[in-house]
Design a protein around this nucleic acid. Sequence first.
DNA 1: GTGGTCTAGACCACC
DNA 2: GTGGTCTAGACCACA
Lengths: 122, 122, 122, 122
Amino acid sequence: MDFVFDNERPIYLQISSLLRTQIVSGKFQPGEKLPSVRELALAAKVNPNTVQKALTELENEGLIYTERTNGKFVSSDANTILIAKNALAKEKAAKFFEEMQNIGYSDTEALNYINHFGGEGK
Amino acid sequence: MDFVFDNERPIYLQISSLLRTQIVSGKFQPGEKLPSVRELALAAKVNPNTVQKALTELENEGLIYTERTNGKFVSSDANTILIAKNALAKEKAAKFFEEMQNIGYSDTEALNYINHFGGEGK
Amino acid sequence: MDFVFDNERPIYLQISSLLRTQIVSGKFQPGEKLPSVRELALAAKVNPNTVQKALTELENEGLIYTERTNGKFVSSDANTILIAKNALAKEKAAKFFEEMQNIGYSDTEALNYINHFGGEGK
Amino acid sequence: MDFVFDNERPIYLQISSLLRTQIVSGKFQPGEKLPSVRELALAAKVNPNTVQKALTELENEGLIYTERTNGKFVSSDANTILIAKNALAKEKAAKFFEEMQNIGYSDTEALNYINHFGGEGK
DNA sequence: GTGGTCTAGACCACC
DNA sequence: GTGGTCTAGACCACA
């Protein structure tokens, strides 16, 4: 797991969203134990408190839970995770349409654009 | 023009991005005079310094220019504006694909999702 | 505002629940500005970070909100606050019944006990 | 006997309070032999040390006593147990009034609330 | 002056 | 070894 941070957003949010995507994308399986706070801090070269703050976010979202003295685990409720994944996807799509609309594309034009873009642009 | 701000991002960035979208979307036409800094500040209920900072952003991007003692104007170079618009659109689309990929969608799946989403979700 | 802490629970939780009760009980009015993080920290003789953590709790509950660079304010939505108050009361009552039941009082007996207790015991 | 723990409080305290309520509520009769530490540990799926720590609590309160080589027994002094029960009840009631007061209910209002709540809420 | 972030480092309870 | 809490102190962006 490699951590590269930009200076635009708080590090703890970058960590939490990185882990969030790893959970919803299945790289961390439901019920799986996460690396310890200290390990993550070491890997990310940040202070353990920063990791702690990141994980608190995910815990509030119900994506992970804590067993005291034992570690932190991905929620074993696959449904919660699926819901989170869908929520994220929906959010991304809605944001795309909204932003395209702001710069003068109707939803239809935005769809045209991205279908065209996806085919060649990348 | 109504201004609603969230507390997540700096206000000056919210103002500049709002004006930017109004320029590229044609709500402000090429060569058109912008409202004065004071007027904008009044409308947005913020400090004129904040508006000034926002406009500096746009000026750096070449979207507006200043005539001393006369005011600020939208660039009359329609091409500059079109380029800005395309750059924005491309950026949005790329970001969408990247974020979908992070949560486990291939580019193809992301396209499927958004075509489906655009058709019914909104 | 005087702060006295016990060693049983984390200080930040004691601070947040103290402020929570002051909000729901109306000592802090809807929309009212809270003392700054630094002021509270000074008054409670704790580190500003600790106060910050306490206030984050309340913000997550929707009881307060933040205006960046301006301060933190009690939610102006009186309804949110009322709901929080009712939730707290309900929680307290439910806990009472549950605990009494655990030590062998039926709900009816618990009611008898507390009506009797309330009349003389205090 | 089923044990379900939360991660908020130390497990040994959760065990001791569970056993305490079973004693004062009569599920364990005065003089009755308790299950062995090992049995309890097995049932609760915790380390025997943890059970031991829980039982020490109860022994300090005089609710149980140890016969070396023979096991641990509920105190045969019914009075001790009754006193413990009353102390618990009184404590619960006082806590209820105090907490309700904190969120803006006078003792009278709290009584009204709980009589009403007990009648319908559950 | 306001909140927000982050670090270094310490200490604790628990198992 | 695990997570949790707290401090002291620094630095930053914003308005």
